[in-house]
Deep mutational scan, measured.
Amino acid sequence: MKVIFLKDVKGKGKKGEIKNVPDGYARNFLFKKGLAIEATPANLKELE
């Protein structure tokens, strides 16, 4: 799953980066803790 990092996550990504991460990791950790959001076309446009 492609995500946009909202905060730095040690060993995974830095704020503003767009990366592919495992689906479970994104849903169960990154999204729940507010560390990242899904890289949807709308979210990507908002980032620019």
Rank of each mutant, 00 (worst) to 15 (best):
K45P: 06
A26V: 08
D8M: 05
E17G: 02
G34A: 07
K45A: 14
R27Q: 12
G24N: 14
G13P: 00
N28L: 10
K19E: 02
N20S: 13
P41V: 13
P41S: 11
L6Y: 03
N43M: 11
A39Y: 13
K10Q: 12
I4Y: 09
Y25L: 09
P41M: 11
F31K: 03
N20E: 14
T40H: 06
K2Y: 14
A42W: 07
A36D: 00
G13S: 04
K45Y: 09
L44I: 14
L35K: 03
L35P: 00
R27P: 02
I4V: 10
K10A: 13
V9N: 01
T40N: 09
K32V: 15
K10L: 13
K10T: 10
F31D: 01
G34V: 03
F5R: 00
K2A: 14
I18G: 01
D23R: 13
R27G: 03
P41W: 13
K2T: 15
P22M: 08
A39I: 05
L35E: 03
K19F: 05
K15F: 06
F31M: 08
I18Y: 03
T40G: 05
L6A: 02
D8Y: 08
E46R: 08
K7H: 13
E17I: 01
K10D: 11
T40F: 05
K45G: 10
N43A: 14
N20M: 15
P41G: 09
N28D: 14
L35I: 07
G13E: 02
P41T: 10
Y25D: 05
A39R: 01
E17S: 06
K33L: 15
K19G: 08
I37M: 14
P41Q: 12
R27A: 08
P22F: 07
G16E: 02
A36M: 00
N20P: 07
G24V: 12
K2V: 14
K45T: 09
K7I: 12
A39E: 02
V3Q: 00
K7S: 09
P22W: 07
I4R: 03
K45L: 14
K14M: 13
E48N: 13
K12S: 11
V21K: 01
L6H: 02
G24R: 14
T40Y: 05
G13L: 02
F29Q: 06
V3I: 08
G34K: 10
E48S: 13
A36W: 01
